[in-house]
Amino acid sequence: MKDKKVLIVITSHNTLNDGKQTGYWLGEVTHFYHILREAGYEVDFTSPKGSQPPLDQRSYDLRDKDNRQFWEDKRLHSQLNNTIPIEAVNAEDYIAIYYAGGHGAMWDFPSNERLAQLAAQIYEKGGFVCAVCHGSAGLLNIKLANGRSLLDGKTVTGFANLEEKLIRLTKAVPYLLEDELKNQGAIYKRGILPGLARLKTY
């Protein structure tokens, strides 16, 4: 059913400015996926380039129950390895769009005009636009029919400048996400992460 279907967007970008590998963060796909399925929603996966998106290997943790169940499910693994190209997605089929995180999202989410159009169409027909972590980069550059930024006046969060500094990647990314969200009129709120100092560095 169209009113029970959600689109998960996954990055196709795999390289930081310093040449190191990146991609999407596994848990930021699997955790949300399982919540949706338990609530009875159907889920499709899309990416800017379609086909198999690059996994950030730091996120490959099968001790995580959701990751393990997802990764070992052959049907899901096949679906993830064959994401729908954004150009083939119809906004009318979805009640919500969700931008999964991973540093790669900072490159190809905000620069993809078709992706921004899809999000605007879903939002303006009463649907939901949501994101996690670096996936909030997908909220940048979404313009509504009235010409205003989707972010204008909205309270949002996303990967903080402090977090980027702690994992020593401020020069490896194209911009600081917190700054860009604010630049587009968002009211930025940083979450409190008890394990912030233990974040893995590259």
Rank of each mutant, 00 (worst) to 15 (best):
M1F: 11
K4P: 08
V6K: 04
L7H: 01
I10S: 01
T11P: 02
T15V: 10
N17V: 05
D18P: 10
G19C: 07
K20V: 09
K20H: 11
Q21T: 14
Y24R: 02
W25S: 07
G27D: 09
V29G: 02
T30Q: 01
Y33Q: 06
I35W: 10
R37L: 11
A39Q: 15
G40H: 04
E42N: 09
V43G: 06
P48L: 02
P48M: 02
K49I: 06
G50Q: 03
G50P: 01
S51K: 14
Q52H: 11
P54E: 01
L55W: 10
L55D: 10
D56E: 10
Q57E: 15
S59R: 03
S59T: 07
Y60L: 11
Y60D: 14
L62E: 10
R63Q: 13
R68A: 14
Q69F: 12
D73H: 05
K74E: 15
K74N: 14
H77P: 05
S78C: 06
S78V: 08
Q79P: 11
N82A: 12
I86D: 00
I86F: 00
N90E: 03
N90H: 04
E92M: 05
D93K: 04
Y98S: 05
Y99T: 04
Y99H: 04
G101H: 05
G102Y: 04
A105H: 00
A105E: 00
M106I: 06
W107Q: 08
P110C: 02
P110M: 01
S111T: 06
N112W: 00
N112F: 00
E113A: 02
E113C: 00
E113W: 00
L115C: 00
A116G: 01
A120W: 00
A120T: 00
Q121I: 02
Y123W: 06
E124W: 01
A131D: 03
G135T: 08
G135V: 10
G135Q: 05
N141C: 09
K143I: 04
A145H: 09
A145S: 13
N146C: 06
G147Q: 02
R148N: 12
K154W: 12
V156N: 07
V156C: 09
T157S: 15
T157I: 11
G158C: 07
F159V: 13
F159G: 13
A160S: 15
N161M: 08
L162H: 12
E163F: 11
E163T: 12
K165R: 13
I167E: 09
I167H: 08
R168L: 11
T170F: 08
K171E: 12
A172G: 05
A172R: 06
Y175G: 10
Y175V: 09
L181F: 05
K182C: 08
I187H: 15
Y188D: 10
K189C: 13
I192F: 15
L193D: 15
L193G: 14
A197H: 15
A197E: 15
R198W: 15
L199M: 15
T201R: 14
Y202E: 13
Y202I: 14
